[in-house]
């Protein structure tokens, strides 16, 4: 019982940090992914190529390595000491840049699945390109990509534990420390349960959203 009075508050504090990483990543990567997807589909070849290489690199190297590179890059490459708060910056930037690459490919598949006729109808009706994208294309894309996005978002719940390598006291870091100090599996078991509940909540929200968008079919 004594153990619980330490474990639960510590894991709780860790969970808050995990949740923060999760939210910040989504807030940054969801819009950034659209920008990268549009760059990837650009008719301007150099831009499209840069986006392509970016996506390939971000998906082709471990997120853990990317986080470490961001954490220590400023010092090793530039000799700049970023201070102790930098790990949070490195963490946020690393997650956002990495997830935006995955989201970009999902957006792209969604955008390319919209029939050309919708663009043409909008063009003839006088919609600007931005209006066409935001009012005609994007709402349809969201419905189409929701299942694929859902998978990535659930992966993100679990990936937040990678912030462990930066020494950020998110839930997995806390669980590991608690397990060591109490010589017990219990902290891991509780942390696992919390991750699981977290993903169940995310799934619930995704299902609700899918139902809400079920008012039409193509």
């Amino acid at each position: 019982m004594q153990m619980m009075s330490v474990v639960l508050p510590d894991l709780g504090a860790g969970f808050v940090l995990s949740l923060e990483i999760f939210v910040v990543t989504l807030l940054g990567a969801l819009p950034l992914g659209i920008v990268i997807a549009l760059a990837r589909m650009s008719k301007f070849k150099p831009l499209s190529l840069v986006a392509r290489v970016y996506i390939s690199f971000m998906r082709g190297t471990p997120l853990m390595l990317q986080l470490m590179a961001l954490m220590f890059g400023p010092y090793y490459l530039l000799g700049v000491n970023m201070g102790s708060g930098w790990k949070f910056g490195a963490c946020a930037i690393g997650f956002i840049l990495n997830y935006a690459a995955y989201f970009a490919e999902i957006y792209r598949s969604g955008i390319q699945s919209i029939p050309v006729g919708h663009y043409e109808a909008a063009e003839v009706l006088g919609y600007s390109r931005a209006q066409t994208f935001f009012y005609i294309v994007l709402p349809q894309v969201i419905k189409r990509i929701l299942p694929a996005m859902g998978n990535e978002v659930i992966t993100l719940v679990k990936d937040t534990s990678l912030a462990f390598v930066l020494g950020i006291a998110e839930m997995f870091t806390e669980a590991k420390a608690l397990a060591a100090s109490f010589v017990s599996m219990i902290p891991y078991v509780i942390a696992a349960a919390i991750y699981w509940i977290f993903t169940l909540v995310v799934e619930f929200i995704l299902n609700k959203t899918e139902k809400k968008l079920d008012y039409y079919h193509d």
Partner: peptide, 19 residues
Amino acid sequence: KKARSKFGLVFQNFNLFPH
């Protein structure tokens, strides 16, 4: 843009916005 306000087009396959 001004010219586009002068005409309308009806497509063979409608191209209504499904959402």
